[in-house]
Amino acid sequence: MPGLLIATLKGPVLADAVEQVLTATAYELGMAVLAGLHIEASAEAIALTATDRYRLSTRTLVPARPAEQAWAGTVDGDDLRAAVADIRRSALVRVEAVPHGIWLRMSEREDRYCRTLPEGFPDHRLMLDSLDEVTTRVTISKDLLLRVLEEHPDEHVVLHITDHSMNIRSPNDEHSGIPLSATATGEALQIRFEMTTLYPAVSTAIGPEVMLDLRGHDGPVTIRSADRGDLTTLAMPIELDH
């Protein structure tokens, strides 16, 4: 029996979005919802969101065909990962909601069922709407930044941002580091991250340049493509003296 149509999407686009957003999931005892992908569907768009409480990634897609009605639910992340290969090889995927799950309908492949999770998803809309104003904005080459992060020897990384560059150093190294050419506006600042928080947020950004919108040394940082804003990640810093 067919379910409620919540979106028809291009398979390769949906597969990429699922993989990008699922990097922000986590497995924590008693919080199964953090391992899921939250879906919000309307006639105009379908939004995919995941969070591990230190990162929040969200991507909005325009459906090839609109939803029959608005729908929201959190889908099991492991079920979606198992379906990604089939999704990517399908020209179009119909996403249908049924009680306790969704069906991914693919014309040339076997349909895939993914469970929905009963727990409520964190109120990410409230958090996004209540973000402080951006105080510093940095635009930098994504490949350059990733290369330096990959070679960084410490599990923590400090970004020192000035007018014309971003210096990357270890927390205990106050006077040296690796200067990277960047375009920066706003206040100079230092901010510290866990490598496991910052690296995935940068690596999943779309496009050759990544933009960081910072809100002081202790506020969440918005990381997205400099020229395409449909994938956005929030990354939480840690205290400089952590």
Results as ranks from 00 to 15, higher is better:
M1R: 05
L5D: 14
L5K: 15
T8Y: 14
K10Q: 11
G11Q: 04
G11S: 05
P12A: 06
A15N: 05
D16H: 11
D16G: 12
E19L: 09
A24T: 03
A26T: 10
Y27K: 12
E28S: 11
E28F: 15
G30H: 04
G30K: 09
G30F: 01
V33S: 06
L34M: 11
H38S: 03
H38K: 06
I39Y: 02
I39Q: 08
E40C: 08
E40T: 12
E44L: 08
E44I: 09
A45G: 15
A47L: 15
T51H: 03
T51V: 03
D52L: 08
R53L: 11
R53K: 14
R55F: 06
S57K: 04
S57I: 05
R59I: 12
R59W: 12
P63C: 11
A64K: 07
A64D: 13
A67D: 15
E68S: 12
A72L: 09
A72K: 07
D76Y: 13
D79S: 10
L80K: 00
A83G: 05
D86V: 05
I87E: 05
R89M: 10
R89E: 13
A91E: 08
L92R: 06
V95R: 07
V95K: 09
G101M: 00
G101R: 01
I102E: 06
I102A: 01
L104H: 04
R105E: 15
R105I: 10
S107Y: 00
E110H: 11
E110M: 15
C114E: 07
T116M: 07
T116V: 03
P118D: 12
E119H: 13
E119V: 12
F121Y: 14
D123Q: 14
R125M: 08
R125D: 12
L126P: 11
M127I: 10
L128A: 08
L128S: 11
T136M: 03
R137L: 02
V138F: 10
D143M: 08
L144M: 13
L146F: 09
L146T: 13
T162N: 12
D163H: 13
H164C: 13
H164K: 14
S170R: 03
S170F: 03
E174S: 14
H175M: 15
G177Y: 10
I178G: 13
P179G: 07
A182I: 06
T185S: 10
T185R: 02
G186D: 02
A188N: 14
A188K: 03
A188V: 01
L189Y: 00
Q190K: 15
E194A: 00
E194N: 06
M195Q: 12
T196F: 06
T197M: 00
L198E: 04
L198D: 02
Y199L: 06
P200E: 00
A201K: 09
V202Y: 07
V202P: 13
V202A: 03
S203L: 11
G207A: 01
V210Y: 00
M211I: 00
L212P: 01
D213M: 00
D213K: 06
G219W: 01
G219C: 00
T222C: 10
R224Y: 05
D227C: 04
D227H: 05
R228I: 09
G229A: 08
D230K: 06
D230H: 05
L231E: 01
M236C: 00
M236A: 02
E239P: 02
H242C: 01
